[in-house]
Every structure is written in C-alpha cells, then in structure tokens.
C-alpha cells in the first residue's frame, strides 16, 4: 500500500534559526502518529508545514501521491504553486488549532458550512445536512445555532474539529488541541479525537497528553532540536525509551 503522507528531507528556517533540520516521516492510511517533545523542538512547525501554513526551503511533502506546495519548473528551479492550487491542496488536510479559531460572527453550524460552500461549492442545503451530521458526531448538535462566544472552550474545540473533518480530509492534523482548555474540559475533546482514531481516520497530532498519545497512537515520534530523535510504537517509546534525551523528557512529563 502506498503511503498517504511522505515527508522527506524537510528543512525549515525562520530567518537565521533553523527549526527543522531534515525530517523524514511516512504515514499509511489509518496511522495515528503523535509528535512529542519539548517546546521549540519543531513539532508544531512540522505540522504547519504539512498544510502549508508554513513554507519550507528544502525537502518535499507528498500527500496522497501529490507533491504539495511547490513544483520544479523547466530549469529545475523550485517554485511555489499558485494560491488556488495551494488552497486546494490545503483542503486535503484538516487542522484543529490550539486556540480553536472559530469564526466568531457565525453560529456553530455556519462555521462548519463555510468551507463546504466556499471551497467545495456545495449547495447550502446539502452543506447544512453535512454540517449537522458532523456536529452530531462531536456531540454538538444541540448547540448548532450557538455562537462561539456562547460555548465553552471544549465545545468550541469540538465544533472546530467538526469544521475541519467535514471537509473530508485525507489526514487530520491536531495542534495541541487541549492545551488551551481548562482541565475539566480536556476529556470531552480527547474523547472525540479518540473516536476518530478508532474509526480509522489518519491523524498526525502534536500533544502534551502523554497518556493519550500512548493510548491512541500507532506510532510516537520524539522530536528534539528540529530533528526526529527517536520513534517507535507507543510501548517502545514510553515503555523502553532508548536515548537519554527521551528518558529525560519522559521523566519530566506527567504520564
């Protein structure tokens, strides 16, 4: 089976600072990969490269068989794809953000419908049906006419996940989706993510929830200073960490 996501030799700098120093990562359909590591290790940047929110200088990302973001022109020069093409590729990935980023002037259901209507050109009635279905799936059907400001953080995050997944992406990206939540609201969001994982959604997630990463992941990747420092099954990474760095990191994390 050909991989759904292939990242090879990925380099990314912010000015002088190189934050990704050659990342190679492959994911098959249905894989759930957790990126762990201390802040500044590059895990969020890596995630943002996959949906082209960040551009990158070297290496390539292939999604469902397509190189994304860049192409080589006749002279072998690397060129960024036109905006329309980038937008289309981006909609093949779904992203849930740490800060939810719901559109505050739209109700929950309108938040979910926007991409369906404006990106997928779906008729309004059909978009409403699809949106309602996904809001049901994340347990938010009863609140579909509420505005983000009238919802708790956990509820907002669930709507944000519905908004992303309604676009029917090839892969879902989760960027520390529980970090901005009050502790008592974390579980409801993790339950939604877990359900998606169980149903076979391909997911790449950045998380500080080690217990959760151990439970849901098919693979765990430990990043350190812009490189993949150690990777393996959850049992290998959490049960028998090989490198000293990972051992140290895990000792300082709550499990």
């Amino acid at each position: 089976m050909s991989p759904i996501l292939t990242i090879s030799g990925l380099h990314k700098s912010f000015g002088e600072l190189e934050v990704l120093k050659g990342i190679d990562l492959t994911m098959q359909q249905g894989d759930v990969v957790s990126l762990i590591g201390s802040s500044g290790s590059g895990k969020t940047t890596l995630l943002r490269c996959v949906n082209l929110l960040e551009d990158f200088e070297k290496g390539s990302i292939e999604l469902a068989g397509q190189k994304i973001g860049y192409r080589e022109d006749g002279a072998g020069q690397r060129r960024r794809l036109p905006e329309r093409e980038v937008a289309r590729q981006r909609s093949m990935t779904g992203m849930a953000f740490q800060q939810f980023n719901l559109f505050p002037h739209m109700t929950a259901i309108r938040n979910v419908m926007l991409g369906l209507i404006k990106t997928k050109n779906m008729p309004k009635d059909e978009a409403r049906e699809v949106a309602q279905k996904w809001l049901e799936r994340v347990g938010m059907a009863a609140r579909s006419d509420h505005y983000p400001g009238q919802l708790s953080g956990g509820q907002q995050q669930r709507v944000a996940i519905a908004r992303a997944i309604a676009m029917n992406p090839q892969i879902m990206l989760f960027d520390e989706v529980t970090s901005a939540l009050d502790p008592e609201l974390v579980a409801e969001v993790l339950a939604v993510v877990r359900d998606l994982a169980v149903e076979g959604m391909t997911m790449l997630l950045v998380t500080h929830e080690m217990r959760f990463a151990r439970d849901v992941s098919t693979k765990v990747v430990f990043m350190h200073q812009g490189r993949i420092h150690e990777e393996g099954t959850p049992d290998e990474i959490f049960g028998a960490p090989k490198t000293e760095r990972l051992q140290g990191f895990l000792a300082n994390s709550e499990i």
Partner: peptide, 14 residues
C-alpha cells in the same frame, strides 16, 4: 487574532 486567517486557510479558502 491571526488564527482567523489561518483557520480560513485550513479549510481551503483563498
């Protein structure tokens, strides 16, 4: 918040 634009980008909007 700049997250609004990014959320729009993430659902494929131009």
């Amino acid at each position: 918040p700049k997250g609004l634009r990014e959320a729009g980008l993430a659902i494929g909007l131009t």
